[in-house]
Simulated assay, not measured.
Amino acid sequence: MDTSHATDATDTTDPAVRRFEAICVIFNPHSTGDAPDLAAKVRDQLSQDLPYTPRIRMLPTAHAGHAVDLAKEAAGTPNALVVSVSGDGGYNEVINGVMSAGTTDTVCAVVPAGNANDHHRTTARKPLAAAIAEGRVREMDLLHLSTGDGPGAQSVYAHSYIGFGLTPVVAIDMEKGNKGALKEMVSVVRTFAKFRPFRIQHADGTRAKVDSLVFANISRMAKYATLSEAQERPADGKFEVVLFPHTAKWKVLLKAFRAATTGLGDQPSVSSYEFTALKPMPYQLDGEVRAVPANTEVRIESAPSALTVIG
């Protein structure tokens, strides 16, 4: 759906300032939240407030995973901005679609909709319409996860975090409407009933039983949980590793409470991390649940400045 056709891609001597020829707004029209209304507001505001006239396309998704295809197609348009009106999971699909397009000058942005909006909450600098009018873009690192070889191999990107074990499960549970550290603590206790630690083998051959292992490209999850003291606008080619070795549950509760109140403090910062999943393991990728089979090598790498963003 095009709302305008005239284009004024103003030349500039500053490569960080952009005037977009096309703006593609991707949203779920059947969202239980406010995504359709927010998408319409984005379209109307950009049509009225921008100092130039890009072609604005409304791209509703038809099924789970459709945003990947829509974003990949949109990234084939020169000088395009792809706006995801979604939570963290929807934005994850968009960035994976753009990354699958290969070399592209596409810029990405997210308008928060739904419950999980950790990425926007942690990285946003100014209202999107004002940022687009100003046109100043910046680069952002991504996390890249690759597993195994052959037909079952996975290769996928995350904008915020990749987590195995307890911490990401609790974080998603916290995001389902609870507010305040006390209620978050209740979420932690409830999640304990169905949680079991997992075993991994590190790259040096040593094995460990772990309660939680999170690779974080942002410093905060689920509104109140502060994972590390990482910079909130990540572009340093590294990510933080937050590891909870298996211990008594009351000690894990204390760590979780600390994350929800004062934060966990400094965490190791690396550019890559490898381990082998000794048993089938679910994991959270920007809030979306996936899994790796037993005896699978898992590699997490920073993709430095892989994505250009605005907002």
Rank of each mutant, 00 (worst) to 15 (best):
M1I: 01
S4K: 00
S4M: 12
A6D: 05
D11A: 12
T12R: 13
T13Y: 11
D14V: 12
A16K: 15
R19P: 10
F27M: 01
N28Q: 06
P29E: 05
P29H: 06
P29R: 00
A39S: 09
K41H: 10
K41P: 00
V42N: 03
R43A: 05
L50E: 08
L50K: 06
L50N: 00
P51W: 15
P54M: 09
I56E: 02
I56Q: 06
L59G: 05
A64M: 03
H66G: 03
A71S: 10
A75S: 11
S86K: 06
G89V: 02
N92I: 01
S100E: 11
A101M: 07
G102E: 05
T103G: 08
D105I: 11
A109V: 14
N115F: 12
N115M: 10
N115T: 15
A116E: 13
D118L: 06
D118R: 13
R121Y: 09
T123V: 10
A130K: 15
A130C: 10
R136P: 02
R136F: 12
R138T: 11
L142F: 10
S146A: 11
G152P: 05
Q154I: 08
Q154E: 11
V156Q: 00
A158L: 01
S160T: 01
G163F: 02
F164I: 14
F164C: 04
T167D: 14
T167H: 02
V170C: 04
I172W: 04
D173M: 07
K176M: 02
G180Y: 12
L182F: 12
L182C: 00
K183V: 12
S187R: 05
R190M: 12
F198M: 03
H202E: 10
D204M: 09
A222T: 00
Y224N: 12
S228P: 11
G237Y: 01
G237M: 05
G237Q: 07
F239K: 07
A248W: 15
K249E: 11
W250H: 12
L253N: 06
L254K: 14
K255G: 09
K255R: 15
G263A: 09
S271Q: 02
S271E: 06
S272L: 00
A277W: 08
A277C: 01
A277P: 06
A277T: 08
L285F: 02
L285Q: 06
A291P: 10
V292W: 14
V298T: 08
A303C: 10
S305I: 00
L307E: 07
T308G: 04
